[in-house]
Simulated assay, not measured.
Amino acid sequence: MNDTVNRQILLVEKPTGKLGSEHFRLTKGTVPAPKDGEALVRTRYISLDAANRAWMHGATYRAAVEANTVMAGGSIAEVVSSNDPGLKPGDIVFGDTGWQDYAAVPAKHLAKMPKLEPMTHLLSVYGVAGLTAYFGLLHVGKPKEGETVVVSAAAGSVGSIVGQIAKIKGCRVVGIAGGKDKCHWLTSELGFDAAVDYKDGATYKALRAAAPKGIDVYFDNVGGDILEACLAQMNNRGRIACCGAISQYDGVPSAHGPRGVPGLIVVKRLVMQGFIVMDYMDQRDAALADLQSWVSSGKLKVQEDVIDGIENTPQALIGLLAGENRGKRMVKV
């Protein structure tokens, strides 16, 4: 990597329909100088998430990404120089660096990471994906042994971990994913009890067969029609952890969300709760201790999808939105 040039990927135009490579441009800028309280970091691995697409629509839990600015995104980065006593050169951090080689970021917005190998695990199982799965399932979904847990986008970065944690907790686990290959992978490699291929078109019927005793916990990554199919099969006092709504992000959102929801929630006394992983960061150490012990004992398998080269980041995100990936997708800068 040339340490005087800063390659940057700009979002040149906000898409009105599906995201395409024409919405991005690779450019070369200068390496920024860190101000007081900032650190200059060199990006190592860029995290790709469906949320990247949601940020283009408008403000969410972060400000919207505007046209002709560096595309926003979290990454694992290495501190090059620091004007803050809390960080020193060589430290590994996670932060919103954007899609570029170098960024000057306020130290208070950088999370110092443990030095672990492989470093990619800091973005997957020990990063936002693993922590989202952990807190969303255990603190929001609250599964009990013997219950049925259903997770959508089950072959993705969060869903693949949710299902495995639910198995560790003694639940019957059903994954919803796109395509026979992904469904086979969930049951043969990750230990899911059953998998439903939503591309088959008969999701409701397949779900009923896979979860004959109904659903106690539904971990929702997609919203839309799949949420509707699961809601109708929830058991009394079921819990729904709302993590994302991929079906609504790219292109034209479906005109309706789940229908008949209020009546179902009342009659079945359901709890439906949204969450953001940042709400739980005070409990991160305990979560990481659990995740590390499960990985080292082989109970939790880590699947990563690493793509080489910053220039491939736009295509990698477009592919993620189309469901190309298994496990956590990231770009090695």
Rank of each mutant, 00 (worst) to 15 (best):
A211N: 07
V267R: 14
A77M: 02
C183W: 02
H121C: 11
G257C: 09
E117P: 08
K14N: 09
K199H: 14
E324C: 07
L227M: 12
L122H: 10
P15T: 04
G179W: 00
P34K: 10
F219Y: 15
D197R: 04
N221V: 07
A209P: 06
E22W: 13
I215T: 08
M234S: 04
C171F: 12
G175K: 03
G159H: 05
K144V: 07
A289C: 12
E228Q: 15
E117G: 15
G319C: 13
A255L: 15
A154C: 00
K213T: 10
V162S: 02
K18I: 06
I215R: 02
L110G: 00
A229I: 12
V128N: 10
G98L: 08
A211F: 05
A64E: 15
T27H: 09
T30H: 14
V271Q: 15
V266Q: 06
P118R: 13
D308L: 15
C183M: 03
A209I: 14
A67C: 09
Y249V: 12
P85W: 06
V217W: 00
Q292F: 06
L116T: 12
G74E: 14
S21I: 03
V158W: 05
A103E: 04
G156S: 06
K108M: 14
Y198F: 10
A33R: 09
V5W: 12
E189F: 05
S296F: 08
V266N: 15
L11P: 06
G238H: 02
A194F: 09
A287S: 02
V151A: 02
L320A: 03
A210I: 01
T4V: 13
G159S: 02
I176N: 05
E13A: 10
I76P: 01
